[in-house]
Write a protein that binds this DNA or RNA. Structure first.
Lengths: 193, 193
DNA sequence: TCAAAAAATGAATCCCTATTCATAATGATG
DNA sequence: CATCATTATGAATAGGGATTCATTTTTTGA
């Protein structure tokens, strides 16, 4: 087994366990068992428990960024880009519920922690939104008085809050498509000149 | 000292300690020291550590709900109500940074936990938003095709994400008023017919 | 003023688990 | 096949901290 295989085997196990029990209640031995390795083996690939969390966060967000940027390249209209972004975000986290739970946790887990560790991957992700807004403003489609730095957070916050529905509720009252449609309409009307 | 005084003394201490260290890293002895009581005393008022968290959450959200409902009574225009809600939310959490950190944490801390404990106070809070939207739709001011159940979460998510700025950043790039203005404009345009 | 009840104390208990490390297994090389 | 290097193992360590409870302090009311 290649080294990277074991690394990702542990990461995937950690996603499941963190989602099931939360970061603090997850035991290293739980992750080890889930990954079918010995407890000690984990420390050959990660420095400590926190390191697993950060590492998985960066890896997974990194993958998501690549995917969505690729998707957005196909489209030029900023309004449609916004819809694509929203739909992709919701779809992805619906498909990967475990990951969704962990990302939501990680983002808030400990603000102390977030302060120190400059979360560049996360910033890169939400900056995709502000780039779209900026583009729309350049092209005189979007209202130039809207602050992209506020709107990007508003949009991300809205998506994130909605995706909690799918994480927490067995039978969410809305479909993914309906939600993406509603949200992007709402923000599009809000952004348009 | 009346019983309720000691209860709230412990609650207030817990807010500070949870904000400083996070729930899991906070020790009961830290809270006891902050509240100037013995460790054991805490167990005369709360069943366990979790109970402190839930209890403080309900108490504080309860107070906020009362405040904001009172404020909203003065105003009849749903658009202005939305602005008042946003401004109040941001102002309050800016003034009480510790509380803001704890509420943000609590909301996500453990999704498992959130699933079991039906968080009625939180639901009551965001339902203030959907009531405003509903009113606007009844009065033919807001677009009837907007789903209040989605919009309420979008608006709350946006506010919550923005308030993280003040919690995490020493020098936030926007003022409270500017942010409330931008957010309510954004959503107002999105909601209006 | 003085029991009796209520409230508070904090040291001791008891459990939990992240991390380490001596040992074992596996793989590579000539 | 023999040797060295790499990788994996999991029992033992080591420390932390939530909760309990026997004891002390404070309050109540007769």
């Amino acid at each position: 087994m290649r080294i990277s295989d074991k690394h990702s085997k542990i990461t995937q196990a950690a996603v499941k366990v963190f989602a099931r029990k939360g970061f603090f209640n997850a035991r290293i031995s739980d992750i080890a068992k889930e990954a079918k390795v010995a407890d000690g083996t984990i420390y050959l690939y990660f420095n400590n428990k926190y390191d697993i969390l950060i590492s998985l966060f960066e890896d997974e967000i990194g993958k998501i960024i690549l995917q969505v940027k690729l998707l957005l390249e196909e489209e030029s209209d900023p309004g449609k880009k916004l819809y694509i972004f929203a739909l992709h975000h919701l779809k992805l986290l619906d498909k990967k519920k475990d990951l969704a739970e962990v990302l939501q946790m990680e983002l808030r887990q400990s603000n102390k922690f977030m302060k120190e560790y400059r979360n560049t991957k996360f910033i890169e992700y939400i900056d995709i939104i502000s780039a779209i807004i900026h583009q729309g403003q350049e092209e005189n489609i979007f209202d130039p008085t809207v602050a992209p730095g506020i709107a990007k957070r508003a949009i991300f916050g809205a998506l994130d809050e909605m995706s909690r529905l799918w994480v927490l509720d067995e039978n969410p009252p809305y479909t993914i498509e309906e939600t993406a449609q509603q949200l992007s309409n709402l923000f599009l009307k809000g952004l348009t000149l």
